[in-house]
């Protein structure tokens, strides 16, 4: 066998697999969204979801959630990764603890925060013991959309900051410390070094981190189901409902197209805004 054919033989299984389970369903999602069950081309599915009373709230909630959660997480992750880079003793332990949520699903995160914020949960028990409230009080009900939203924000920040942290820590690790020393010798203090050296050189990592995190924010689903139930519709949850509860694959596919569209739009946005020319990278 010719040695030139080796790499193709090695990647062929992956390619075939991705064609079958990435490319093909990707095309299929569009065809399902834009056809009726008889195969006619139609916009009926989009009509269905746009006219559904949950569509606009779910779009609004998803975007709002991403808008609030992602910037907070970014700032936290930058701060935490800078702290990690300054640590000597215990660095590995701290890093391990801070990245534990990486292995925790949004479902489990939702359950954890439910234990805290439930009617007879730990938060209420604490407030009761210090005398702020008189008995179990339900925060997470439909009368209190702000509380539900805040609970989801907390759970999301708790769960998904780790992924940003890991990307940024490895990005900071790639910056040679001579750059900081050079900046310091020329009189830059820590603050200036952060803005003039660290963050600019970290832009490729920031870009990856933001893309990944924002897409994950559009996929938010189980946390919301647990903490908000039906009181807080989001896009992914609606897609699930149409597919699972209403058995309407076309409408679910239409939701999927909306989410995909948002994802692509934001990815392109980040790629453009945080673009670093190849020759200007480390």
């Amino acid at each position: 066998m010719n040695i030139k054919s080796y790499p193709y033989i090695l990647i062929a299984p992956s390619i075939l697999f991705l064609l079958a389970f990435f490319v093909y369903p990707f095309i299929e999602v569009f065809s399902q969204a834009f056809t009726t069950s008889n195969g006619e081309i139609t916009l009926k599915n989009f009509d269905t979801i746009f006219n559904d009373f949950n569509f606009l709230p779910s779009l609004k909630n998803t975007l709002l959630l991403a808008l609030v959660v992602v910037p907070v997480q970014l700032c936290m992750a930058i701060g935490m990764s800078l702290m990690i880079s300054k640590m000597k003793k215990g660095r590995d332990t701290v890093l391990y603890i801070w990245t534990i949520p990486l292995g925790i699903s949004d479902l489990a995160a939702g359950i954890i925060w439910l234990a805290l914020l439930d009617q007879n949960g730990f938060l209420n028990s604490f407030l009761f013991s210090v005398g702020i409230i008189d008995g179990p009080e339900s925060w997470l009900n439909y009368n209190n959309p702000v509380a539900i939203f805040a609970a989801i924000v907390f759970a999301e920040i708790w769960r998904a900051t780790a992924i940003l942290l890991v990307i940024l820590v490895s990005g900071i690790g790639l910056i040679p410390k001579e750059y900081y020393e050079a900046a310091e010798i020329f009189g830059a203090n820590a603050w200036v070094r952060l803005w003039k050296v660290t963050l600019p050189l970290l832009r490729p990592s920031l870009q990856t981190a933001l893309i990944l995190r924002t897409l994950l924010a559009f996929e938010v689903f189980a946390v919301v189901m647990i903490l908000g139930g039906t009181n807080m519709p989001v896009l992914m949850g609606e897609a699930f409902n149409w597919a699972f509860s209403y058995r309407d694959a076309g409408a679910a596919a239409a939701y999927a197209v909306v989410i995909l569209g948002l994802s692509v739009a934001f990815t392109l946005f980040y790629l453009k805004v945080l673009h670093v020319p190849k020759e200007a990278q480390i």
């Binding site: 992956s14 390619i15 991705l18 389970f21 990435f22 093909y24 369903p25 990707f26 299929e28 999602v29 065809s31 399902q32 893309i211 990944l212 897409l215 559009f218 996929e219 992914m236 897609a239 597919a243 694959a249 679910a252 596919a253 999927a256 989410i259 995909l260 994802s263 692509v264 990815t267």
Partner: peptide
């Protein structure tokens, strides 16, 4: 690029068409 591209899509969504298939 194809490998990296897969990460720019919300992959769980692909379960929707696959459920039908």
């Amino acid at each position: 690029m194809m490998i990296l591209l897969t990460r720019a899509f919300p992959m769980p969504l692909l379960a929707l068409p696959l459920a039908v298939i």
